[in-house]
């Protein structure tokens, strides 16, 4: 979605080194550098993060709400993916 304000970018902030980048919002900018500077001014004025990603919104591929059920279902019925599915004998310590 582009207009006189430049294209839309999504902004991700990393709070501390080692933590995941979390989506915090979006903004308009004309190029990468401006997107990064605007993201800093708009989303990290109070120490909200130490690193930023900006990504053109158009470049993001997302699942659609109608997919919700079928798309994510498999992980729910495969209970053997979860550690609680398995019996561990007493006396072998923490596993």
């Amino acid at each position: 979605m582009s207009d006189s304000q430049g294209p839309l970018w999504e902004v991700f902030v990393q709070k501390k080194a080692g933590q995941p980048f979390v989506h915090c919002g979006n903004l308009h900018a004309y190029d990468k550098e401006m997107a990064l500077q605007n993201a800093r001014d708009l989303y990290t004025r109070r120490g909200e993060g130490m690193a930023l990603w900006v990504v053109l919104s158009d470049a993001i591929v997302s699942s659609s709400p109608e997919d919700m059920g079928s798309f994510f279902e498999p992980s729910n019925d495969k209970i053997f993916r979860h550690p609680t599915f398995y019996q561990i004998p007493d006396g072998v310590g923490h596993m």
Binding site: Y30, D31, E33
Partner: peptide, 11 residues
């Protein structure tokens, strides 16, 4: 805005 848009397009 016009200058930033033109520069951004080039970038």
């Amino acid at each position: 805005r016009a200058a930033a848009a033109a520069y951004g397009k080039k970038q």
